[in-house]
Amino acid sequence: MGLRTEHEIHGRRRSRNIGLGIVLLCFVALVFALTVVKVRQGDMMEAFDHQPRVSLIPAEAEDAAAAPEVAE
């Protein structure tokens, strides 16, 4: 039965593992909740990737771009 005997060291190790597990779960929950709050506040949710996104181009620029077409 020697192999099954639990050394005191295992208790300390378990406390560390459980503690870190809880901390990581809390961090995930926190980032998720933060995302929900930030999105609801209307913060910018997308950024430029490799090319400009239409949804991110300022309205004035679009109007200016559209104007020559109207003239033609």
């Binding site: 300390r12 560390r16 459980i18």
Partner: peptide, 19 residues
């Protein structure tokens, strides 16, 4: 052979020690 003494050299901290 089980050598439990090998552990005693390394400090194994509890979670509270990091706190």
């Amino acid at each position: 052979m089980t050598d439990i003494n090998a552990y005693e050299e390394t400090p194994e901290a509890q979670f509270g020690d990091y706190v």
